[in-house]
């Protein structure tokens, strides 16, 4: 039982499925962002796994960029969520349908 590329892809795929499940089923906007983080991590794991099994260095460099962009995304998205909560008194994403108060 050697661990090869397919095992990593299965882990990444299940992580992707759980992240999409979180995005689809949650009402809380912060929880939806957690699902987005899971999906991003699934993609990064794919990049690193392909880099390890014959892809060279590029996958790891792009995973590094992906982590940086995920950090930027988290900062801006959480700031938006805080503003929405301040404006609407609710963290329910389905209630946040107004652009303006």
């Amino acid at each position: 039982m050697t661990v090869g590329l397919p095992q990593y892809l299965v882990v990444s795929g299940v992580l992707l499925a759980l992240g999409l499940f979180t995005i689809v089923t949650r009402k809380n906007a912060v929880a939806i962002l957690m699902g987005v983080e899971l999906v991003l991590n699934a993609g990064l794991l794919n990049l690193v796994a392909f880099s390890r099994f014959g892809g060279g260095l590029d996958g790891q460099v792009f995973a590094l960029f992906g982590i940086v962009l995920a950090a930027a995304e988290a900062v801006v998205a959480l700031a938006i969520v805080l503003q929405v909560v301040r404006a609407q008194r609710s963290v329910d994403a389905s209630k946040a349908s107004d652009l303006k108060e």
Partner: peptide, 8 residues
Amino acid sequence: AASAVPSG
């Protein structure tokens, strides 16, 4: 998809 990928 993963089962179709060669082990590498």
